[in-house]
């Protein structure tokens, strides 16, 4: 191949690249539209909800879906649609906060272990193995039960059980790159080990991390909802998908299926969105996907 190849078109802008990823893969486009919907609901939920999510109306308890109440009402006569919409903010906040925490802590620990190796690596890996040896949900239950029944503690518990996945992923990604030519070249350019790790090696681990982040957001929502379902974490009457499913479960037997179904569907939709989002996010942060 000749050294002076024909000039390729100018480098794509970041926005242009995101546009390309979305156009190229309709599934990603759908995932991002659903994600946008979730974000809108999280920010403007209270404004969009047709009723006050906490206002009970005993005369209209347990009504099936109708034009007044699209998703029906629960045993206290609260509008389920409003409660589902308003709960979006709380559920997303818990999962995003938990994933952000485990992303940051896991990246630092994993990068250090992967780059320096030796006893740091051995010690850290064994600690993470210990966490992973517990049934993770039971561990989260234990943490919340021991530390107290608050939203922050749900976030911490979710972050701790997700931490090993990030740490292991980053450790592997850093480990295969620590002797790559570009890392050595960065050292020759006068970068200290810490700078090489933080500015040259770690950013290259981002594409696979994005897949993990997006899958984890889904798991984190399920985990928070699961804790609430069994009575740990968020307390009634706060609107939260997990509690709503738990409350509704009692009425399924007596035929009032809508009380549990709609918050359950919201959960499914959110988890589904995050699972679909992963590949698209990875393609967006990977410069090699640009041409």
């Amino acid at each position: 191949m000749s050294d002076a190849t024909a000039p390729a078109p100018a480098r794509q802008s970041t926005l242009g690249h995101i546009g390309y990823v979305l156009r190229d893969n309709p599934v990603t486009l759908v995932a991002f539209l659903m994600f946008a919907l979730l974000i809108v609901l999280a920010f403007f939920g209270p404004m969009l909800a047709p009723y006050d999510p906490l206002a009970s109306n005993a005369s209209r308890a347990l009504e099936p879906p109708s034009w007044d109440h699209w998703f029906g009402t629960d045993n206290l006569g609260r509008d389920i649609l409003s409660r589902v919409i308003v709960a979006t903010r709380l559920d997303l906040t818990i999962s995003v906060a938990a994933v952000a925490l485990s992303f940051i802590a896991g990246s630092v620990l994993g990068a250090v272990a992967g780059y320096w190796g030796g006893w740091v690596d051995a010690g850290l890996s064994r600690c993470l193995d210990t966490i992973m040896a517990f049934p993770l949900f039971v561990l989260a239950m234990g943490i919340v039960a021991a530390m107290g029944n608050t939203v922050e503690n749900i976030v911490y518990a979710t972050a701790i059980i997700n931490l090993p996945f990030y740490a292991r992923l980053v450790r592997a990604e850093v480990n295969i790159r620590r002797n790559a030519g570009f890392a050595l070249a960065a050292k020759l350019s006068g970068n200290s080990d810490a700078r090489v790790l933080a500015l040259h090696i770690f950013p290259n681990a981002l594409p696979p991390m994005m897949v993990q982040v997006s899958l984890n957001l889904g798991w984190a929502i399920l985990n928070a909802a699961g804790l609430s379902f069994i009575g740990l974490g968020v307390r009634p009457p706060t609107a939260e998908w997990g509690i709503m499913v738990a409350e509704g479960a009692n009425f399924i037997v007596s035929g009032e299926w809508w009380v549990a179904l709609f918050p359950g569907m919201a959960l499914v939709l959110a988890v589904f969105t995050f699972n679909l989002l992963g590949d698209g996010l990875r393609d967006m942060v990977d410069p090699r996907r640009r041409t």
């Binding site: 790559a180 030519g181 570009f182 050595l184 070249a185 020759l188």
Partner: peptide, 13 residues
């Protein structure tokens, strides 16, 4: 130093 594998020695990002 000039490295052996030019591809590997440039940061892909």
């Amino acid at each position: 130093m000039v490295f052996q594998d030019a591809t590997d020695s440039l940061n892909p990002r």
